Amino acid sequence: MNGSQNVVVEGKNSATITNSTLSASGVGNRNNVDNAGVMLYQSMSGDAGNGTATFTSTNSTLSIQSTSSIYKSAPMFFVTNTSAIVNLKNKTLKFGSGILMSIKATSEWGNNGHNGGNVTLNADSQILNGAINLDQLSALTFNLKNGSTYTGQINNDQSAKSVKLTLDTSSKITLTGDTYVSSLEDADSTYSNINFNGYKFYVNGKALNA
């Protein structure tokens, strides 16, 4: 797909990708506002019910084409003006921006002050890389289990409404920048599954590795 995202889910709808390979330019149609590999949103146009948008992918590959003009700028996932659940299991993600997920309000959809994103990201046996960025109207619950790994930085600019991170003992994260979360539930009480990598990890304002 040369002129679109791979998948777009609007409102109370869902998309499931299994044992498949998808590749797209990631180019949206709103003056670069909606460029992404996958977009979850609510347009408020009335053609999709309000509710939670769900994207599930297992044993698949999803790519933003390296030849795309936005390859180095578009996030893999973009969520705005909706609640969303993203379920990923044993999935390969290929993108060049270094931004795994962008969760934020825009002037394009929703009512100002109430149009951020509220995302639950579930990683199961999944390798994830890239920054997760949120604005002040947006929230994230990030769950890693069954040997999942995440390498990146979360809420680096401290702007998010809230971020909840949960890890089981088999899952690991490696920081590539200072990370700020509202709460942390780590089944490993020694935090040996967190590689601070020289960066700070703040939980509710207090550095875990002070």
Rank of each mutant, 00 (worst) to 15 (best):
L137P: 05
A84G: 06
S66V: 00
S107Q: 13
Q65W: 09
F55M: 06
N13G: 13
D135P: 04
T58L: 06
L167K: 01
N118S: 14
S138D: 06
M1N: 04
N197S: 13
V163G: 01
L184E: 11
L40Q: 12
V79N: 05
L165P: 09
T141C: 04
V119L: 15
P75C: 05
E185I: 07
L88C: 11
T190C: 08
L93C: 08
D186Q: 02
L100C: 08
T166S: 15
L40N: 02
W109D: 12
S102M: 08
S63M: 14
Q42M: 05
N32I: 01
G46L: 06
D157L: 05
Q65C: 01
T18Y: 11
K206S: 13
S189Q: 15
S20W: 08
N143Y: 10
A48H: 13
S68Y: 04
G49S: 13
S107F: 11
L93Q: 07
A74W: 09
V181N: 14
Q136F: 12
V86D: 08
G98R: 02
H114E: 14
V27E: 12
M1I: 01
Y191G: 02
T190K: 15
N50K: 11
S170G: 12
F95Q: 13
D157V: 01
S138Q: 11
Y199G: 01
S14Q: 14
L22I: 01
N31L: 05
S125M: 11
L175F: 14
L22W: 05
V163A: 02
F55C: 05
T151A: 10
D124Y: 14
K72N: 15
T179V: 10
T169N: 14
S125I: 00
S66G: 05
V7T: 12
L22D: 02
A53E: 07
I85H: 13
A139M: 02
S148F: 01
T179W: 14
Q153L: 02
F196Y: 15
G113K: 07
L128N: 06
V38F: 04
Y150H: 03
T21D: 15
L121H: 12
V86Q: 13
D178P: 02
S183R: 08
N35H: 07
F196M: 04
L62S: 04
N6A: 07
D157Y: 04
V7L: 13
D135S: 09
N112V: 10
F142I: 08
K206E: 13
G177V: 11
A74S: 07
N6C: 09
L140D: 03
A160C: 10
T141Y: 01
G113H: 06
T141H: 12
T179S: 15
G110N: 14
F201E: 06
L40P: 03
N133M: 14
G177K: 11
T106R: 02
A131P: 03
K145M: 12
Y191W: 11
K145T: 14
